[in-house]
Write a protein that binds this DNA or RNA. Sequence first.
DNA 1: ATTCAACACCGAATCGTTTCATGCTACCCT
DNA 2: AGGGTAGCATGAAACGATTCGGTGTTGAAT
Lengths: 325, 325
Amino acid sequence: MATIREVAKLAGVSPATVSRVMNGTANVDDDKKNRVLEAIEKTGFQPNQLARALFKNSSRLVGLIVPNIDNPFFGELSRKIEEEAFKRGYHIVLCSSGNNSEKELSNISMLSRMKADGIILITNGEHTGQMIKETDLPVVVVDRHMTDGGEIAYIESDHYTGGVLAAEHLYECGCRKIVCLRGPQEYASGRLRFKGYQDVCRKYGLEEMYIDTAYTFEAGLKSAELLLEKYPEADGIFAANDIVAISTYKVLKNHKIKVPKDVKLVGFDDIRFSSLMTPELTTIRQPISKMGELAVEIICNYAEGKPYDTACILGVELIKRETTK
Amino acid sequence: MATIREVAKLAGVSPATVSRVMNGTANVDDDKKNRVLEAIEKTGFQPNQLARALFKNSSRLVGLIVPNIDNPFFGELSRKIEEEAFKRGYHIVLCSSGNNSEKELSNISMLSRMKADGIILITNGEHTGQMIKETDLPVVVVDRHMTDGGEIAYIESDHYTGGVLAAEHLYECGCRKIVCLRGPQEYASGRLRFKGYQDVCRKYGLEEMYIDTAYTFEAGLKSAELLLEKYPEADGIFAANDIVAISTYKVLKNHKIKVPKDVKLVGFDDIRFSSLMTPELTTIRQPISKMGELAVEIICNYAEGKPYDTACILGVELIKRETTK
DNA sequence: ATTCAACACCGAATCGTTTCATGCTACCCT
DNA sequence: AGGGTAGCATGAAACGATTCGGTGTTGAAT
């Protein structure tokens, strides 16, 4: 692989001139410019990105840490993030943390040694707050509001309003025994969605009924069974997210309970599969595209010294489909 | 951020000695070693990965190019690849190509300038063969057999046997009017799966019936409608992949056709949702984990000068579930 | 006691790019 | 014509870790 020095020698100029021609960073005599371009053509010279990054102390790499990339919600988010980053000339280093703090730490440290320009962090890890504080990289936290500082910005949906919309919709559909399969209360998303549900119940004088669950398929199956045991009178279910809603549907079906005739069902997220399943799932749509774009925008603006937002709470939307018809 | 020189000065040794202590690349006097470790501790020194990579001409980065990361099949594969790479001390640069040749080319070129150690390519791009030939990086192609050279290895499932297994299973379930929703014939996967189906039809003297489709949800919906129009007598359907199978189920349901009572349905891939949907989908399982592990293993072995496999055809497995009960 | 081998360590060069601080030339204006 | 200046080109230094060649010291063997 040719180096800038070889190109310079071939064109009869200094390496500095070659650099200028390549980056358009200063005017160069037309004659020399042409000779340089010719030499680049002839040698097939490609600048070594590592050398460039070493000097600039910036690799144009952005770390993306997700719990697991095979979760559709994170998959869709990652896609948007990659697209947006590419548009801006950055590339994504993918880290699937599996909620393993040790691996997360190792990745953050690696990204720092690599002079990444920032980290987009989507995680529920326990010790992550500490890690963020210790790294010198700018961090944008998505889908979780950290209170213990360290990050430069956070992005999340309006979970509370989502909870309200879901419960209101079930009420409007005639449900009076609405059960909430509520997500982990240590996460803002779980707390706020539940709070929205609660406030609607109080507004209409409905009994608050809930079962604790996690954001996974397995947890969904288990807690749906529990729900039927504890609240057999339920006529509406607000699931923690779409994955849980989908597994809940499975359990209902196994028990010969008809959806939406006997029980109406609402999810959260609007992952792609919500509209692919049969029946199609009513859900609260998070603006996944918007979230991804914003995350990248904030990191890039920070890296380039431009002003950036430090807190974004994005609106959600009720998507009415077959499970509440 | 401290540099190796500062650490050296603080410990009263040369940078070379610090390097040796850090990498265990030679014996160092215990006394000095301790002083160095202490200095590292005190300064919080972290070696600059870019400088290291520049010297070694290897960044320990592996490029992963997928058509779209939000497709569950690729999501699951990516997860495995990331995990395996992490275990070996490599990191993944994610590129979602969207089957856009220009973007793919740009990414490949970037990875080369970045001194990535290899590329794992999962794509159906048209001009990709040419690109592979032009790059100096080792490339492993997954899920598509290139014939025009350039790559160091390819990995694919035994699509033909998958086709046979699917058709045989439908026959055993009593189907005699089996329709194949066949995938793109320009891809080996599409051709071979169809070939397997064909051979089974010939073996039992069944009529060959097929509709062309693509590996997407939208195409699945359209071709399933076409299928019902053209072959209303169908009692078994072998779909191009799970996505197509899922959309086919939707169409059948809309037409009040019962699965598996009226029509039995088999997919291909065994993505996670196959067992999450209701009814659960019978399908041909591709060994996604194995594929991911192998891809990384090959790239790493190549990068480290160890022997590596150049062609892997992996076995598939029939997973019987509710859509053929 | 002398020689030689083994070992630890340092200084310097290297990787390929960018930038800084000059140097040089040529031109213009007075 | 001479001085000032603008503009372009360039050499050298810098970025930070690694490795190589070489020097100095120690210890053992003869």
